[in-house]
Design a binder for these strands. Structure first.
Lengths: 211, 211
DNA sequence: TGTACATCAGTGAACGCGCGTTCACTGATGTAC
DNA sequence: TGTACATCAGTGAACGCGCGTTCACTGATGTAC
């Protein structure tokens, strides 16, 4: 990946243009959060930053391209989460470490959930590019998780019927989806900290086999 | 819920019309599976069954209304799954029971995943009707799961830091989302039966505390 | 069993809005000397 | 420090497609007697 930033026609752009491009990306993210993908129009994005649709097309071929870039940025923000997932969780400190991971994941999710939602939809509907960016992001966490789980299985703390890779995927799936339920769960009495503690306990249990 | 089926203008319709309406619903589900929500047009749905868009509007005010009905139908198909989630799983038979639940869930998911995907997207983007239908469906499983988990916590098999309701939500989240990863996991060597066994082992562990 | 009428079901064709997209242009900034 | 020119950045305005939606109509089915 080059550091140069390009316009839709491929030319490298200067500082002023980069700022405009960034504003367009931010506006896209904002409208995605506020009104969702199904009502997202190029006109609205441009209007949001007080410019014309023609400007948008200077920088992106279409809306998907902008969202795809936002999804890549989300992946970047996900990378540091891996630090929380190093093998060696013990019965004594594992739960605390799991909690730290969940805290970091929840912050990440809060920042990017609107974009991640669209990324996942498009990936599941078969879009090649979104599928790629999702897989890359998921593998970040899954690779680390897989190692930890394999360790647990080898040590006999976890049952052999757990496939490490699939289990890792299940953990990621659980995190991702559960946070999507948050608004409704809040109405039914699951506060953010309840979700946090429960999720940490579950992950600790799944990974180490300790209960 | 009344058994009578109504046209968009509210009148009760006869057998022939019911058949047409059903064909429209089936065509909607089919196109949703094949090309996703973002490219779904009323014209395409009508064309699919060899009729005109005007016919579609006889039965539905818009595409959302048809999808919402498909989502309700999915909920009906989800109800029998509850039978697999009765308290009393033992260390001896719990894993088998969990496997039976997973089998049933996977069949359910295969049938309805395209519709569920859209239901979830619209629910998360704030649509009141889709949110309602999703919550109802999720609560079906969650109520049962919650009872089982509460039992485990009470018996000291599960840690007190697990909130039963949130844990139930986490189990549903894990099932739902993991199956969405299936296509990509298949490429990386997780077969359907691996996913099945791993998911069953995880659910068994989470619910009963046995490893 | 036939006829007249009522209601149900389906549709061809068009309208018009809204959005994506582009073009030809203006204004802003940078650079050479 | 000034001038001339090149390039970068941004845009007003319009075009036209495609889709949602509707209307006025035809044909099919049911019912009364």
């Amino acid at each position: 990946m080059s550091d140069d930033i390009h316009a839709a026609d491929g030319r490298i752009i200067g500082a002023r243009a980069q700022a405009t491009r960034r504003k367009l990306l931010d506006a896209t993210a904002k409208l995605l959060t506020e009104q969702g993908i199904l009502d997202l129009r190029v006109v609205d994005i441009s209007r949001e930053i007080g410019t014309s649709p023609a400007t948008f097309y200077h920088y992106f071929n279409d809306v998907d391209e902008a969202i795809l870039e936002l999804a890549s940025e989300a992946t970047e923000d996900e990378k540091p989460l891996v630090d929380h997932l190093k093998p060696g969780w013990t019965e004594a400190d594992g739960l605390r470490r799991a909690g730290e991971f969940v805290d970091a994941y929840m912050t990440f999710w809060d920042t990017h959930h609107a974009v991640l939602r669209v990324r996942n939809l498009k990936a599941e509907e078969g879009d090649r590019h979104f599928r790629k960016v999702r897989t890359e992001a998921n593998l970040l966490l899954m690779d680390s998780l897989q190692d930890m789980i394999r360790e647990g299985v080898a040590a006999g703390r976890l049952p052999k019927s757990l496939d490490p890779f699939t289990t890792a995927a299940a953990v990621v799936a659980m995190c991702e989806r559960l946070l999507g339920y948050q608004p409704e769960m809040a109405k039914r009495g699951s506060s953010k900290s309840t979700i946090r503690d429960t999720l940490a306990t579950l992950i600790f249990g799944i990974i180490t086999g300790h209960v």
